[in-house]
């Protein structure tokens, strides 16, 4: 007699917990062969609100961690991914990705985490400065995380795209509320499980599944989100920028169709800079 396997109920990772949508709504997900896979939470604006609150709560503690510690935690996250590499590749192939592409995507995602983990205690040395002002003052510019960042991940590649946007935001101490791939949410659900076991404090990364058309307007107008980074098309971009104006939110978008996520050009210090503020401090030099 064959054993009936236990299927996993897909849950999203918000505030360090695995939850269903507060609305109790779900949408069915089929695998590449058209078989029912599971019911994915259809997160709502209230879920987004809750996620922002979780992110805001986690923010100060995360930002106060030493850069060394944040780097180690990102590295730990990479370890978690590497350990479940096969499962992650499966989460991509199951929904239609070619095995080789899926493997490349997962490997690139792990490498990207390592890349940003290494930046944790270096970007400040490259971006900050001591400024030679023409008066008896010591003047220096440091960076600070902006706060809660909204991330709109591309539909494809679902894992690498998400990690490419989330990692540079959190490495500096920001916390993130991310809307994951609408078409291929399952890798992100797995990622949530890895986040939970990676020493990353709950609330630093919050992942929402659901529909862009429902959630983009709330991302656009939620004033507690200090920046939006995303891979979005022209219409979403305009909507997000319009909403951003209400609270002078920073926005940084890439064109999902013109981005080679596997390439080294999809990573860099600029991505970290995009969610940093520069703070300049003056102090007299006297006695």
């Amino acid at each position: 007699m064959t054993r009936l396997p236990i299927t996993k109920t897909p849950k999203v990772y918000v505030g360090g917990a695995f939850i269903r949508s507060e609305s109790a709504r779900v949408f069915p997900l089929q695998d590449a062969a058209g078989n029912f896979f599971g019911n994915i939470p259809q997160c709502t604006r209230k879920d987004l609100r809750n996620a922002v609150e979780a992110a805001a709560k986690a923010g100060p503690g995360w930002a106060k961690r030493t850069a060394y510690n944040r780097g180690q935690i990102l590295y730990r996250l990479a370890e978690m991914l590497e350990a479940r590499r096969a499962e992650l590749i499966g989460s991509l192939t199951m929904f239609g990705a070619v095995q080789a592409d899926a493997a490349r995507g997962v490997d690139a995602a792990v490498d990207r985490l390592i890349y940003y983990a290494g930046w944790a205690d270096k970007y400040e040395q490259v971006l900050g400065s001591v400024n030679p002002v023409a008066a008896p003052y010591f003047n220096f510019t440091v960076t600070e995380p902006m706060g809660v960042i909204g991330v709109i991940a591309p539909d494809v590649p679902p894992l690498l795209g998400l990690i490419s946007l989330v990692a540079p935001a959190i490495v500096s101490g920001n916390t993130v509320v991310a809307l994951v791939s609408e078409k291929f949410p399952y890798p992100s659900i797995l990622l949530g499980e890895m986040l939970a076991t990676s020493d990353l404090p709950g609330g630093v990364v919050n992942l929402l599944t659901g529909f862009r058309k429902e959630l983009v307007p709330t991302f656009a107008t939620h004033t507690h989100l200090r920046a939006i980074v995303g891979a979005v098309g022209a219409a979403d971009r305009k909507a997000l920028e319009l909403g951003a104006a209400d609270s002078v939110k920073r926005t940084h978008f890439v064109d999902p169709d013109a981005t080679d996520w596997l390439a080294d050009t999809a990573q860099g210090l600029e991505a970290i800079r995009d969610t940093l503020e520069f703070k300049t401090t003056w102090h007299p030099v006297g006695a």
Binding site: N131, V133, A135, Y137, T280, W282, P284
Partner: peptide
């Protein structure tokens, strides 16, 4: 805030980022 003046105020310089 983008500029912090400690034991001074309203100081500006071309070399000092402001915003």
């Amino acid at each position: 805030a983008g500029v912090i003046w400690a034991n001074t105020f309203n100081k500006f310089d071309p070399a000092s980022p402001f915003g």
